[in-house]
């Protein structure tokens, strides 16, 4: 089927099978930052924004993108780099495989929450798993980025 959608502020027509998930469609489209880590919608690696809201693209059918606006980390490189610099300064990207999805959630949180507490930060980011860093460095980076005391 054909899907009329907007990807990273560009109107596009995507070709996808009826039962195809958005994560695969986006990868096929060339957005290779989309990673998948679980098959069960619980690792957060494939997080993109649909109309600005963080969404698991691995369990969103591609046709749901019809008429919507999709944002991947490729589309927010400037802001992603700002946070990545803080993250990398902490060494908290480690293998980096979960980082794009994690960063998309962090940037969404920044847009959504005003002055979040540490508890709110942890809660917001819970769905993004990481097996390398032990999360502490990521938390330090997020707090520095948001200037949380």
């Amino acid at each position: 089927m054909q899907i009329e959608t907007t990807i990273n502020n560009k109107k596009v027509t995507l070709e996808a099978a009826n039962d195809e998930f958005l994560a695969d469609t986006l990868r096929n489209y060339g957005l290779l930052s989309i990673r998948q880590g679980c098959d069960t919608s619980c690792c957060g690696l494939c997080t993109v924004w649909i109309d600005g809201k963080p969404t698991l693209s691995c369990s969103t059918l591609a046709f749901r993108a019809q008429g919507r606006s999709i944002t991947t980390i490729e589309g927010v490189q400037q802001e992603a780099k700002k946070f990545a610099e803080v993250l990398v300064a902490e060494g908290a990207e480690q293998c980096g495989f979960c980082s794009p999805g994690f960063i998309m959630t962090v940037l969404a949180m920044k847009n959504e929450l005003n002055h979040p507490t540490e508890e709110e930060i942890v809660h917001y980011l819970t769905g993004n798993l990481c097996r390398c860093t032990g999360y502490m460095g990521q938390l330090r980076a997020v707090k520095k980025y948001l200037e949380v005391k």
Binding site: L32, S33, E85, V88, G91, E93, G96, P100, I103
Partner: peptide, 21 residues
């Protein structure tokens, strides 16, 4: 020195550098 990883920025911001990419 706590130097940042040489590949850090690229892997963190989603550059296609893993096997499947």
């Amino acid at each position: 020195k706590g130097i940042a990883k040489i590949d850090g920025m690229d892997i963190a911001t989603g550059r296609p550098v893993y096997t499947e990419d």
